[in-house]
Design a protein around this nucleic acid. Structure first.
Lengths: 279, 279
DNA sequence: AAAATGCAGCGAAACGATTAGCTCGGTGTC
DNA sequence: GACACCGAGCTAATCGTTTCGCTGCATTTT
């Protein structure tokens, strides 16, 4: 590999001058600058990002840890994050915690080792762990996404899950449904608990109570939603409308409907938070 | 940050010994080893991956350049690639060329600068550019995925597009269809050209000729497929079956069908290479 | 003319690790 | 007892940059 020293030698200048030319960090007279640039070109020199990183203590790397890369919603996040960081000259390192705290922990360790300049994390959300981890994160730019953890020291981007669920439930109520069921996510996550709460609130406000068997929780997975839906819907007293916690689960529900020959929207209404294209 | 020197000082040994303990690269007597480990623990020392990289010339980073991160098919590739590299202790840096050669070129440059240890690339596929780039890539472990470019020096993973399209077309023919149309991808890509060729071959072998207006090409995009499908299908002489080049385009076609109140599979059969969940 | 100023460019010390080569004391052999 | 040998641990060079502080030289000020 050709280094800055080779370039310096070829151009008959010091490495400091080459560096100045590369980074435009100091005035270099036109003739020297030209010689340096010619040498860079001739030798096909490219600065080593690694050496630069070591010296500057920054890596121009941003990390993204998502809770489930197989979920199209989070896959879309990769797309968005890549575009954003690329626009600033950074590169994106992607990790999948797969909803496992252990994987998230490993990823965070690796991120520190790589000296990433910042991290975007969809936390797996066991708040106790975050408390202990908070100290480590202190001073390291981290933004939590989607799920709120009990950690008042981290910037977090999320939606108002309760309000969202409440709105969608009211919409179903307005359509005239009274037998509304729900398949929600894990209740230890705000995206699970909050959406369920919002739905229950909306129904309570209208004086409607969901039947016990019509409200079920599960993981944010297509197959889980499928099983739950098959079970819940394969009975005469099934709900006439279903609020499903997220897009992936809605897919599972749709598959269950197809298998049970229940037609949507003819026989049942399905609503969900965060749809994914294809539904 | 705490460095290897701090640890060495705290443990009363040289940095070489600390390094030996960390990497298990040389015998260190139990007492010293214990002291070093204690110091590492006390100081919460973590080796700087960057410094290590610089010295060893490897980054433990694998790059992935996909042609379109918004396409669920490639998003799924991110999932698979992340899992694979993580299993080997590497991390995945993701780039989106967005089907633009210029972006791909930039990503490749960045990958070299970051000293990634290898790259997985879904090439945008203008072969001329690859020829000129081949020299740069020489010696750099690169695997091309999905699309074959005119470059006999790169390892490539792909499917037999012609055979795949041929099979699916034969299936449609077996169902009794004769008015089969196709919406294919860009013809400068093997995933575009090959799939069209396979379809035409299969039809020719059965003595069936597609109608001119029933074979159209476009970009691998949902909206493009939608427009083309609307136009092609909103006529009385529309095909009774359609072979669509990929999953994203099939989504667009399905949307067009819904808008035109054409029912699938009642009124028309739709087949595609690489479905995406949700259809 | 001497002193002061400005400035282009250089030399060398970092950054934080790995590792080749050396030292130094203890064993084993003749 | 002299010699070679061995093995644990250290010293210092190295990876490829950036950057602080210095050197001369040319110009301006007194």
């Amino acid at each position: 590999m050709t280094t800055i020293k080779d370039v310096a030698k070829a151009a008959g200048v010091s490495t400091a001058t080459v560096s100045a030319v590369i980074n435009d960090s100091a005035y270099v007279s036109p003739p020297l600058r030209a010689r340096v640039q010619a040498a860079i070109h001739d030798l096909k020199y490219e600065p080593s990002q690694m050496a630069r990183n070591l010296k500057k203590g920054r890596s121009e790397l941003i990390a993204l840890i998502v809770a489930d890369l197989a979920n199209p919603f989070f896959a879309r996040m990769v797309w968005a994050a890549e575009a954003a960081v690329a626009a600033w000259g950074y590169s994106l390192v992607v990790f999948n915690s797969d909803e496992k705290p252990e994987n998230e922990r490993k990823a965070l360790a690796r991120i520190r080792a790589l000296s990433c300049d910042g991290a975007l994390v969809v936390p797996v959300g066991l708040s106790s762990q975050y408390a202990q981890r908070e100290a480590e994160r202190r001073g390291f730019p981290t933004v939590l996404f989607g799920r709120v953890v009990d950690d008042r020291h981290s910037d977090t981007v999320t939606i108002d899950n309760v309000a969202a669920a409440s709105q969608v439930t009211n919409y179903l109520l307005d359509l005239g449904h009274t037998r509304i069921g729900s398949i929600t996510g894990p209740l230890h996550l705000t995206t699970g608990r909050g959406r369920l709460d919002g739905m229950l609130q909306a129904m309570a406000q209208r004086g409607v109570a969901p039947e016990p068997g019509h409200v079920r929780s599960g993981e944010f997975r297509e197959d889980v939603a499928y099983s739950v839906a098959r079970e819940m819907l394969d009975r005469p007293d099934r709900p006439t409308a279903l609020y499903v916690a997220n897009g992936v689960m809605a897919l599972g529900v749709m598959r269950a409907l197809a298998d049970l020959s229940i037609h949507c929207p003819l026989d049942i209404s399905i609503a969900s938070t965060d749809t994914i294209s294809g539904i």
